[in-house]
Amino acid sequence: MIPRPRPERFRLRRTMMFMNAQKPGLIKDAYIYGVDSIMLDLEDAVAENQKDSARFSLYHALKTIDYGETEVIVRINGLDTPHWQEDIRVCVAGGADGIRIAKCESANDVKTVENAVEKAEEEFGVENGRTLLMAALESPKGILNAYEICSASERMFGVAISGGDFRKCMQTTPQRDGIDMVVARGQMLIAARAAGIQCFDTVFTNLDDNEGFLEEVKQNKAMGFDGKSLINPKQIRPVHEIFAPTEKEVIQAEKIVRAVRENAAKGLGVFTVDGKMIDIAFLPGAERTLRLARACGMYEGDLV
């Protein structure tokens, strides 16, 4: 029995790697690749007549494997299936850090899951509110309702778009420049930021097209995503590299954090750093850069 610490609602989640919960060989040590979060899948990766065995495998993995600091999230089956309630009981009983709600279309969907999670927490004696939630938006309706979904629960830490289903609904296919999903990604990002939660991009499925993958990750970063869903360990490092701040950004952030704290002590609200006007509004961004830098092994100071 491996006790896991209480999950942090907001933590570094640059990479979330999907793995079939039914494959012990894969999930037994998925943490060794250095991914921020692993996403154990009970949904599409598991055949309809194997849902039960996947839950067993998942439960025992959660109970016996020490995933250390790697976050463990479970993708449960959709609310239109007969599986999701049992999926939630297993996640909570096993002590998963979070649950990803598949095909989420409304705040009500989030609340439905939240209620089931609460009941399961009570049933299994798990601390109330421990199990976090995130939503996957897979349909135009989900995108249109993004803000109400993002702000539906205190348990919600993030939202992700699922490109496969969404593109089918929109009658499009993956485009090199991302034009196929630019509006959806944008709307979801705005909603997530407005609700104060994190936002993750969809998987890139063509493992042979490394260049296309790198372009997409760069665009993700430029748009302001917190991270990306992945399907293979070899995708982890490039994402971490692209999401890493530059050395210049780290130095700048360090200066800003120091300056804000020092000037606050002196009672100054606005001042300049290297000739640029800086005020308190720059602090959260600078602190985020330093946290990211620390995760990337670029910062060892004590400011964050």
Binding site: I32, Y33, N232, P233, K234, R237
Partner: peptide, 9 residues
């Protein structure tokens, strides 16, 4: 194999 590649790296 991702495991081999990680070790090789």
């Amino acid at each position: 194999n991702p495991r081999d590649l990680m070790m090789a790296e």
